[in-house]
């Protein structure tokens, strides 16, 4: 039982990932305001980035930057001493793509506001149905 509780509490990053993912998903589905939906989408993205960066963490390791750069390292590098940099660079791309998505979404929201004079989903649906 103690092992089970330890296993549940020990992976608190994964619990935060699940909660953030569900918060963002709820906002994308259930919120009425379009900007709230976009904020939910951003929370969803950062939750997935949190999951990937969590996979790169190692115990008793340091940041993935070599002390001696540019050919000064002649011996093999101790990989276990550094956090894995591969998920970091993947998520770096994801952050930049995310802010591009955000910019396009907000531009579309401004266009919707100019056309329908509202950004509430139900009011837009009423205007479209007329």
């Amino acid at each position: 039982m103690a092992d089970f509780i330890q296993a549940l509490l020990g992976h608190y990053n994964n619990w935060a990932f699940i909660l953030l993912l569900m918060i963002g998903f709820y906002a994308m589905i259930a919120k009425n305001n379009l900007i709230k939906k976009v904020i939910g989408m951003s929370i969803f993205q950062t939750a997935i980035i949190l999951f990937y960066v969590s996979m790169a963490v190692k115990k008793n390791s340091t940041i993935p930057i070599l002390d001696h750069g540019h050919g000064a390292v002649e011996h093999a590098i101790d990989v276990a001493a550094y956090a894995s940099p591969l998920p970091h660079v993947l998520m770096l791309t994801a952050i930049v793509v995310g802010v591009a998505t955000l910019g396009v979404a907000l531009a579309i929201i401004q266009k919707i506001h100019r056309t329908y004079d509202t950004i509430e989903e139900d009011e837009i649906m009423e205007i479209i149905a007329q």
């Binding site: 969590s54 940041i63 956090a83 998920p87 802010v99």
Partner: peptide, 18 residues
Amino acid sequence: MLAVDVAFTEAAVGAGVS
């Protein structure tokens, strides 16, 4: 979580631009 490159990109792009 030792991801310093992700951290400063998020500080500039996430907390700043967005």
